[in-house]
Amino acid sequence: MRFAPQGSPLFRAVLILAGLGLAMSFPAHADTDARVGVRAGDAAEVSRQVHDGHKHDDARIDPHKPLTTKVTVGASAGARLPLPVGKAPEIKVQGSRTFDLASLFRRKTQAPAAPATARPSTRKPQVIPGAPPVVAAASAAVQSASAPQASTAPVAMVAPAPAPAPRQSPILPLAGVLGGAGVLAAAGWAAVHTGLAAKAGHALKTFHRPRIRAEGRMGGSRVEKPEFDSSAPPAIGFIVSPGRAKVTLTFDTDVSGDAA
């Protein structure tokens, strides 16, 4: 089923948010938390916390429980979307995909209306060093949505009277930009970090790899410290090794030939 959102720009944005929120819906597992944070402007930042460092394979959606995904946009704004699985639109997220958010938030009083369906952006994305490709696409989408639209009208010989400024809510474009960036960042997180390819009601497979980083040296040996949730008591275990032994025997008095 092709995803073709209809309705007002705000409704389309919410619909995409909801759909992609479902698609990247992290299994409602108590041990897993995912956060997607997007700064307004060009920079995008995706962060993820894995609390327990354990691997959960084949986590499945419980069709009887609503899934919730928290997508935080900006520093203070946020949205929590409870989505019943059975009513969600069918959306497929695979790899990196670019959505032209500008077409969703383009003013109707300007250039010809863009197709409502998602299509690849024609703008060259600004590459954010170290960011996943789709996050870079989100940044490009932000620029696209923010940039003035190119006029397709012929050049007039006489300067026309200035047209009245189009009436527009100052909140809607900003919300669209931030929301769009959040959606693409979320999609990028899902595509890059979990290799997510799922539809509503299908099994999700998540790959959680605990991150290990070196911390220093102790007793001449390299030491690595795994990350773990400091709020929970760590599960401590030990592996005891007796090690090697070197044994020598010496006589206190000189007994020639006796000692080996």
Binding site: A235, V240, S241, R244, A245, T250
Partner: peptide, 18 residues
């Protein structure tokens, strides 16, 4: 006869977290 035995051992304990 009186003698002494010296032994050197290198045990180790690996600390596991989660």
């Amino acid at each position: 006869m009186p003698h002494q035995i010296k032994s050197s051992h290198t045990p180790s304990v690996k600390l596991m977290v989660h």
